[in-house]
Amino acid sequence: MNDSTGEARSGPSRRGFLTGTGAAAAAAAGLRGELAPAAQPNPAAPAHGPGPVLVELTVNGNKLSTTVEPRVTLLDALRNHLDVTGCKRVCDRGTCGACTVIVDGRTVYSCTMLAVEARGADVKTAEALGGDRLDPVPAAFADCDAQQCGFCTPGFVVSIRAALDKNPKATPEQVEAALTGNICRCGTYEQMRHAIVQLCRKGG
């Protein structure tokens, strides 16, 4: 096993840029900083895995950690290792949106992101919208019956939450545009539209 706790997430971009002969050549070609093909010095990029790697992340405000092989996706780490099951595995190929989570403020398909890539990240799942005070998005879904089997719902709810966080004054059309990466099979879209109208009227 060759493990480390991983570098700080935003660290590399702020560390000193490389210099060297290669970089000079690159500068001539118009390349700067990180893009330069420095011949040396050559800082080591350590190998992680193939054994389990420590992954520490923040999930819904809680600092969690687990060890998983490099091949384990964020989705599987959440579901199988951290028992965070609001994100669902449906297509497992970055198409259907049931696994949608917010990583550092942006929605991603957690099935298509390696857990090691999420080290140090701030991850938000649908569970963050529950608890004592129900978030307006799931509340609108419940009010308008915008769910049937409910398996796709957490993904839709997270996508809408992110869209409204980005633009609290979003129109229903803009919210709908944020849902082109989510699929429902029961056919709850008509009721979902009612929920979106309710949310936009209330201003997110």
């Binding site: 099951t85 799942t125 569970e127 919208l129 129900l134 978030d135 769910q147 409910g150």
Partner: peptide
């Protein structure tokens, strides 16, 4: 069960 489903608690 609307809220439980919509917040992933179900």
């Amino acid at each position: 069960d609307g809220p439980d489903k919509a917040t992933g608690r179900a």
